[in-house]
């Protein structure tokens, strides 16, 4: 315990301790930096609440490793790419088992090894408004995915989930509003790695699959995003990371479902994220 305390806190020259370990999955998120989208560079601001929890299921007696992201909002200013992206809630809830298995309920139950953790990945209320495109917006009301995690880490800071996702979205444009549904016809990948001290953090999310309109028409689309962060400094014990990101959308960006590349470079602060 003493060694752990020493590892988390160091003493300054004046003898005061200061934190050197942070949790990138916790804290009040604030970020700023330039973003490149469609050949235009615009300033981007980011804010949100990150919360990482761990609790033991009463009914199953096994731990749930959860990462919640609330009200994560990105605003791009400038007339060229003025826009807003906001997510009410996004969460990864992973139930970790020492030894996963499939139970076949014969008279004498058979236990078949199943080397995966199960993750419930949810996203509620994801809204996007692109002012430069004119009237219109996109609202993903909900997305739920069941992911298999072969890494089965005992901590929430390492995860790799792949599995089918179902979603419903509304896409409003000049032509009107359409419903888009993905009845588990989308494959979602969500992977992340954060070092134990939180100095490095990386996250990859990708989805590919078909959405169906209420008119029965099907459409293929993909989305990918990579984020890499490196801790640079801490100001008054509040850590500041350098954030590098890249994203791509195929037939899914904006009201007209365009292909799109974007990239960002900025600084992010996670207030109250010291371990």
């Amino acid at each position: 315990m003493l060694a752990l305390t020493l590892a988390l806190l160091l003493a300054s020259a004046s003898g005061e301790t200061f934190p050197i370990c942070f949790d990138p999955g916790n804290g009040l998120l604030l970020g700023a930096g330039p973003a490149l989208q469609g050949g235009a560079v615009t300033p981007e601001l980011q804010a949100g609440i990150l919360l990482r929890t761990e609790w033991k299921s009463r009914s199953k007696g096994t731990p749930w490793l959860n990462t919640h992201r609330l009200f994560v909002t990105r605003v791009r200013s400038g007339t060229a790419r003025l826009g807003l992206t906001a997510t009410l809630y996004e969460g990864n809830l992973r139930r970790h088992l020492e030894e996963g298995f499939i139970l076949v309920p014969t008279a004498r139950p058979v236990r078949i090894p199943f080397p995966f953790d199960l993750t419930l990945a949810m996203r509620l209320g994801h809204y996007e408004r692109r002012v430069w495109e004119g009237p219109g917006w996109t609202l993903e009301t909900g997305r739920a995915a069941l992911l298999l995690d072969p890494v089965r880490a005992t901590t929430a800071r390492v995860w790799l989930g792949v599995g089918p996702a179902a979603s419903h979205a509304l896409r409003s444009s000049r032509e009107g509003m359409v419903h888009e549904l993905s009845p588990f016809t989308t494959l979602l990948l969500d992977a992340g790695y954060e070092t134990e001290n939180g100095w490095w953090a990386a996250r990859v999310t990708a989805l590919a699959g078909w959405v169906v309109g209420l008119d029965g028409g099907m459409r293929f689309r993909t989305r990918e995003e990579v984020v890499l962060e490196r801790l640079l400094i801490a100001v008054n014990d509040q850590p500041v990371w350098l954030r590098l990101s890249a994203a791509h959308a195929h037939a899914d960006a904006g009201g007209s479902r365009m292909d799109e590349w974007s990239a960002g470079l900025g600084l992010t602060v996670r207030v109250w994220s010291a371990r």
Partner: peptide
């Protein structure tokens, strides 16, 4: 009908 259980689900 419950067919099987995956990690107790």
């Amino acid at each position: 009908l419950i067919l099987l259980a995956i990690n107790d689900q």
